[in-house]
């Protein structure tokens, strides 16, 4: 019953005399097929590049899909001003290495008004710095399709989202009125002003992402690897201490061996205690971890907040 296949030679295997394509190869091929459909059927696609591990995989898949050509669409990053400096540096390096055009969108008005989740609340902060910046960016450039790296296993409301997620002219999602999605026949037809969000990684799990990063040797932001970092313990969360951290009276910053499982804005991204300094360590950690990755994102808590944000136009 226990099948083990050498990961080095593993694009395929042989089970009970039947040839099959291994799961990572199938997921890869599905994602490439999706990206090509979008380029074939849309006028002006864009890849929402958020610099995290899923975006890194998405970017590699885009390279594979159109090889030997370059990416036939630009990258767009929504910069809230709270992204870790390592992320910004990594983003610029990757865009250059891949030879892609990079568009950076910032809601400067909200950033100048010192919008902060601890002051204005998470919902208002996310709405201004992320959703507004994103919708304005999509609108100004006239993008009619936007790739995102969201996975269905991340969060409950995402489990119900289509691979081609239709958005009305306000960029909003109506979960009760989604188009049926049959076979791998994606309906890319929209009216002027409408758009789709496209999720090529829908069927990937967090473990699949890490196994693929290892298999393909994909560069990732070093924040994913454990090292001793200045942290403050806030409730269940480990919050990184930097210029944006608002330390409360009884809080003390101290060095903790930790890493990030997901990367977002520094005030809202919790770290986990970890000794995983290599990809193998991370994969091993994945197989014994008992908490979900979204737990480290402070923005997801409160009843069904992801569902509400998505309806407003968030990814």
């Amino acid at each position: 019953m226990r099948v083990e296949i050498d990961s080095q030679a593993a694009t395929s295997g042989n089970s009970a005399g039947q040839i099959y394509l291994a799961h990572l190869a199938q997921l890869e091929s599905e994602a490439i097929h999706i990206m090509r459909e979008v380029v074939a059927e849309f006028r002006n696609p864009v890849l929402l590049y958020s610099v995290g591990k899923d975006s890194s995989v998405l970017l590699r898949l885009a390279q594979k899909a159109f090889y030997p050509g370059k990416l036939p669409f630009p990258l767009m990053h929504v910069d809230t001003g709270y992204k870790f400096p390592e992320m910004i540096q990594f983003r610029d390096q990757m865009a250059e290495a891949v030879g892609a055009r990079l568009i950076v969108r910032r809601n400067e008005v909200a950033i100048e008004s010192a919008m902060h989740p601890n002051v204005h609340g998470v919902a208002r902060c996310c709405g201004a710095l992320k959703t507004t910046a994103l919708l304005e960016g999509l609108g100004e450039h006239g993008f009619d399709a936007a790739f995102g790296g969201a996975r269905r296993d991340e969060e409950k409301s995402r489990a119900k989202e289509r691979i081609f997620s239709f958005r009305d002219e306000f960029g909003q999602w109506d979960p009760k009125n989604q188009r049926p999605e049959l076979w791998q026949l994606y309906n890319g037809r929209i009216h002027e002003g409408e758009s789709v969000r496209v999720f090529p990684l829908s069927n990937w799990s967090e473990l699949d992402i890490w196994q693929y990063i290892k298999q393909e040797n994909i560069p990732i932001v070093p924040l994913y690897y454990a090292e001793s970092r200045m942290m403050v313990e806030r409730g269940k969360h480990l919050i990184p201490v930097d210029d944006n951290t608002m330390l409360q009276d009884d809080e003390v910053a101290k060095p903790i061996m930790s890493r990030f499982r997901t990367l977002g804005c520094s005030p809202c991204t919790g770290a986990i205690r970890s000794d995983a300094t290599t990809l193998d360590d991370i994969i091993r950690e994945m197989t014994v971890v008992t908490r979900s990755e979204r737990e480290t994102r402070l923005i997801d808590h409160g009843a069904n907040s992801m569902e509400d944000k998505k309806k407003e136009g968030y990814f």
Binding site: R2, V3, E4, I5, S7, A10, G13, S15, Y20, A22, H23, L24, Q26, L27, L207, Q211, K214, Q215, I283, R284, M286, T287, V288, V289
Partner: peptide, 14 residues
């Protein structure tokens, strides 16, 4: 996710 999952990084999809 069991410990064995990690050993075989390649398996079928159903």
């Amino acid at each position: 996710m069991t410990a064995e999952t990690q050993k075989s990084s390649s398996y079928e999809l159903l």
